[in-house]
Structure formats: structure tokens, C-alpha cells
Computed example of a mutant assay.
Amino acid sequence: MSTLPTLVLVHGAWHGTWCWQPLIDHLSDLDVRTVALPSSGHNPAVLGDLYDDAEAVAKALAAVGGPTVVVGHSYGGCPVTEAAATVRDVQRVIYLSALMQDVGDSVLSLVDDVHPPYWDVHEQPQGNAEHGYFEAAQPLETLYGDVEPHLAQQSVARLGRQSLASVTQPLTQAAWRTVPCTYILCEEDMAIPLPLQEAMAARARRTVRLRSGHSPFLSQPAELARILREELALQSRDRQSSPA
């Protein structure tokens, strides 16, 4: 059995736990767990918000009951940032081309409350964002530009909707202020531009660069697995060398 920390994976907007499978296939000897975010799904009437997502992440982290490293991808960085500081056994947060924001920030505050062009927004009713949702308008280009075409098409078919509430609500906690963090920069990302990633990554203790688009768990699962193994090993060594 591996002595490395448990790895918990948190997906981004529109996705589900299915997106991690190619990566998990390269980590079969490790304890890897995934979190399904309530804000993402196919039925707009039952989508959750940021705080529902954070609660789901916190419960999954607490259920590990031992040393844990959590990975947040894209939007998934928001509920991870909100939740990770509240769970004692979380030893590191890894932001994978993810939003690494501060208390009071929301997803939309990054872009002056203007919806990005690759969002297909449905505000309901009468412009009420709390009850609206959005879909990925250009997923092949924005999310999966370097993913093998057949896998990219399969992934597009599985995308759901994302609640607008999840991107308008502000963070009330910022895990990176108290938990060691690593930021994995995806240098060819078309969804979160590299300069924005680099600005957020300035808050992390470590940064790693990956020449990939937005979804390396699909386009480069073996390389991403290697990076994550290295992070887990470093964290394990840090834990063993720390004073009791």
C-alpha cells in the first residue's frame, strides 16, 4: 500500500468526475478520490451554488481521515479554496490552471462581472443570476484544443450546465493563506490565459509549468500523473521531516 497522502480531485465547471478517469488510470496504485460538484449537472432546476460545492469538497476531504492533498481544476479551485482550510488533514492544495482567489472574490469579479465569450448564459427569470445557468459555447476550442479528437468529442457530449450562482458568490475563506499550495500552470490554456494563471500562482509556494491546454488530465494524463506523484512525494517527505 502506498504511504503517500490520499489525492482528492475536484473538477471544474460543466464537468463531472468522469473527466478524471484517464488520469486515475495512471495512478492506480494510489488512493485517489473524486468529488462531484452540485453546481454542475444537466438539470438546471437542481444545480447547487458555490457553498454547496464547498460543502461537498469539505465532506469528501474529512472522509479521508488522514493526510490529504487536494487538486482543484479551473472553477474547482473556488470550492477548494473555500473548503480546504477547514479540514485538519489537508496538507497541500494543488491548483491546476485553477482560480486561486481571495476572500470576497467571485469568479466573475476576475472579469469585471462580464461573462466570458465562451459562456452561453441563460439568466432566469428576468435576468436573475441566482436562478440561471451557463453552458460551454466553444468547448472543442476552449477546453479540449490539444485533446485527441475522438476523446474531445466524447467529452463535449458529457458536459453539463453550470449554475450562475456558483460564479457570482464570493469566497469567505482562502485556504492558500494557511495551507501550502502548488500551482500547475497550463501554458497553452485557451480558457484561463497564462498571464492570469501566473498572477494567481504568485500566491503559491511552488509553481510547475506544463505545456498543455486547459484539460491535461485528458490530453497529457501520464505527464500530469508524474507531476502529481512528485508533489505527493515532496509533501510526504516534508511531513516526515517536520517536528512532531
Rank of each mutant, 00 (worst) to 15 (best):
A204C: 12
M100H: 04
A244R: 14
L37T: 02
S215H: 08
Q101S: 07
P116L: 10
M190I: 08
E130S: 12
C19S: 11
Y95T: 00
T81A: 08
E123F: 11
E223C: 06
I184V: 15
A201H: 00
N128A: 11
R88Q: 11
V103C: 13
L224E: 14
D238R: 13
R206F: 01
H122K: 14
S74L: 07
R239C: 14
L232D: 01
D189Q: 02
Q101I: 06
S215A: 13
S28G: 05
R205Q: 14
D53N: 05
G77D: 13
V35M: 03
Q240K: 15
P170S: 08
L196D: 01
D105I: 02
G127L: 10
A62G: 04
L110P: 09
E223T: 13
R177H: 14
T68I: 10
Y118K: 04
V147R: 11
W14L: 12
G145D: 12
T168I: 13
G72C: 06
V179P: 12
S155C: 03
Q124G: 09
Q240Y: 09
A191Y: 14
E82R: 06
W176Y: 08
I192T: 06
P221W: 09
E187M: 13
M1K: 05
Y118S: 04
Q240A: 15
P44L: 08
T182N: 06
V93S: 00
I94T: 06
V10S: 01
T34G: 13
G65S: 11
A222G: 00
N128S: 09
H131K: 07
Y133A: 00
D29M: 01
L232F: 04
R33W: 12
V208I: 15
M190H: 15
N43T: 05
A174Q: 10
P180F: 10
R239L: 15
Q162D: 03
M100I: 07
A233K: 12
T172L: 15
R88H: 12
P221V: 08
Q235D: 14
D146W: 07
S40F: 09
V10N: 05
I24T: 03
P125H: 09
P44V: 08
Q91T: 07
S163H: 07
E123Q: 14
S2A: 05
I94L: 07
P67I: 03
S2V: 07
L185P: 10
A58F: 01
V103L: 12
I94G: 02
V80F: 02
A13W: 05
A201R: 03
Y95Q: 05
A54W: 03
L108A: 11
D52F: 11
R161N: 03
V147N: 12
P221T: 06
A136F: 00
V147E: 08
D53I: 03
E223M: 08
V114C: 05
A233P: 04
M190D: 13
A222E: 07
A157I: 07
D31Y: 06
A54N: 03
A56G: 03
T86Y: 04
V156L: 06
S97H: 01
T3V: 12
V46L: 04
V64F: 02
V87H: 10
V93T: 05
P139K: 07
L27K: 08
Q153E: 15
P22Y: 00
G104L: 13
L30W: 07
L140F: 11
Q101Y: 06
W20A: 05
A54C: 00
L4A: 05
Q197G: 00
R33F: 11
P67E: 08
L210K: 03
